[in-house]
Design a protein around this nucleic acid. Structure first.
Length: 465
RNA sequence: GGCCCGUUCGUCUAGCGGUUAGGACUCCGGCCUCUCACGCCGGCAACAGGGGUUCGAGUCCCCUACGGGUCACCA
């Protein structure tokens, strides 16, 4: 069985880079009927880990991801880690190092002056004497000093590191007894039964260290997949300004979760020429082996395009529901389907959708000056006056767009008018600007009485000045 | 600086020794049209550079350049 995990440190929210690796891990586990676990890496700063986990779960919930089992907090597992530290100590695979921080810093400075790689020199590796007074020791693991550390990365291919180039006897327990990252990650991944580790490639150079831990403890080494980073549009590291903000911010900006997921799954991964992936298709087609080796840049336009696509294809019920989050409540509107169909082709975000809906269901508060200047003159006002009167006495029920089309055409014929002459004035009367969906749709949604009221309001307003 | 990873249109990518190097986003035309969109049709635009290997390289190998990651008692 395949088990994957998402293991963020508690920063307070989930950003899109994290969401992408979480998505990949999730898909790979679920595709294989495996398990997907969540672990909070809070060995150091353990202040907000509960809130952080809740924030992550809230984001997961919004996009539709779910993890198995209880959330694992590393801060609650210190006793467990201590046991393993002791075990290594007992077996002579780890040892106390009494070097002070000052000594270490001095050593590092010297090495750097000589342009060498800063590394621990192993001075306490085989220490037998009496330890110096007044120093609480750290625990270091005995890492191989020669030979190769190799593993097959599911994305990057065969990885090979020379032990002497990258390893030293790194610290597994601090002076205060708390364990360090590379140590606990390996232990937890092993104990939680993680078979496939999918994570950012900034962890690539941690992997040899973790392998040292696996080997020292006799654990099976899992498969690794190091996914390339997401870059900003300039090819630099993604910052908050570029989109590395809280995933929930996308919700506030009017993005559909399926658009965000589709965007992220395609960033660094592809399946032939396919652009649109339903959740089901992702599950069927995703394979981490197909992830690109190179980093990819965040492309806001494509996300927007995808979002527009998903809005266009969403059900009425769904859009009605989403609109509620933006304070547009039209469940009881008798023309809600016409309204939604009129707007869905035009909105790139739910925020836009909501704004456009409001522009139609509420009377205009002001009229766009340019539009008025361009399309409304005395003649247009005269036409509108007659049009309103015509609607008033019409025997047509004036319910659907076609009803309005019929009367309007009859009216145009009677007065020998062209569509262009009447459409823009009507539009301005209805929504206050020269841009809106089809006038017939708008008229139908607004409804006969309100249509007449809005025309009269426009005339009254413009006659004044 | 050491080590590691990477490099196909502006961007996301297809390609897995023989292609007019394909698709998508963006942009630019055109059509549709009551405006704006949507949609449809068309267009611009790429194999980082240099050496090999091969009858033949975007595809395989090497070097260079340029990006990125990482070198903590952070994670």
């Amino acid at each position: 069985m395949i088990t994957t995990r998402f293991a963020p440190s508690p920063t307070g929210y989930l950003h899109i880079g994290g969401l992408r690796t979480a998505l990949y891990s999730y898909l790979w586990a679920r595709k294989n009927s495996g398990r997907f676990l969540l672990r909070i890496e809070d060995t150091d700063l353990k202040r907000n880990s509960k809130e952080a986990a809740e924030a992550i779960e809230a984001a997961f919930k919004w996009v539709g991801l779910s993890h198995d089992d209880e959330v694992v907090y590393q801060s609650e597992r210190f006793d467990l880690y201590k046991k393993y530290i002791q075990k290594l100590l007992d077996e002579g695979k780890a040892y106390y190092c009494y070097m002070s921080r000052e000594e270490l810093d001095a050593l590092r400075a010297e090495q750097q002056a000589r342009k060498e790689r800063p590394r621990y020199d192993g001075r306490y590796r085989d220490f037998q004497g009496t330890p110096p007074e007044g120093i609480s020791p750290v625990v270091r693991i005995k890492a191989p000093t020669s030979g190769l550390i190799e593993f097959e990365d599911g994305i990057k291919g065969k990885m090979s590191f020379k032990a002497e180039d990258i390893l030293d006897d790194f610290i597994i327990a601090r002076a205060d007894g708390t364990p360090t990252y590379n140590f606990v990650v390996a232990i937890d991944d092993a104990l939680m039964g993680i078979t496939d580790i999918i994570r950012g490639d900034d962890h690539l150079s941690n992997t040899p260290k973790q392998i040292v831990v696996y080997k020292a403890l006799g654990f099976d080494i899992p498969k690794f997949y190091h996914v390339p980073m997401i870059l900003n549009p300039n090819g630099k590291k993604l910052s908050k300004r570029d989109g590395a903000m809280d995933v929930m911010e996308y919700k506030r900006m009017g993005y559909m979760p399926e658009a965000l997921l589709n965007f992220l799954v395609r960033l660094g991964w592809s399946h032939g020429d396919q652009e649109i992936f339903s959740f089901q298709e992702m599950l069927e087609l995703f394979d981490p082996h197909d992830i690109n080796k190179s980093a990819s840049a965040y492309n806001a336009e494509k996300l927007l395009w995808l979002n527009a696509h998903y809005i266009k294809n969403a059900s009425y019920e769904r859009l009605l529901q989403e609109l509620k989050n933006f304070d547009v409540h039209i469940y009881d509107h008798d023309k809600k389907e016409i309204l939604i169909d009129a707007l869905r082709e035009r909105a790139k975000t739910l925020v836009e959708l909501a704004d456009m809906a409001r522009a139609i269901i509420y009377p205009p508060e002001k009229y766009d000056e340019k539009a008025v200047k361009k399309f409304i003159n005395d003649e247009a006002l005269e036409i509108l006056t007659r049009y309103a009167a015509y609607l008033k006495i019409s025997e047509n029920p004036l319910h659907l767009p076609v009803d309005f089309e019929e009367v309007t055409k009859a009216f145009m014929k009677e007065h020998d008018l062209k569509m262009k002459q009447i459409a823009q004035p009507i539009r301005i009367a209805m929504v206050g600007s020269a841009v809106s969906p089809s006038v017939y749709d708008v008229l139908s949604i607004v409804g006969r009485d309100e249509v007449i009221a809005r025309i009269e309001k426009l005339i009254k307003t413009l006659k004044k000045d």
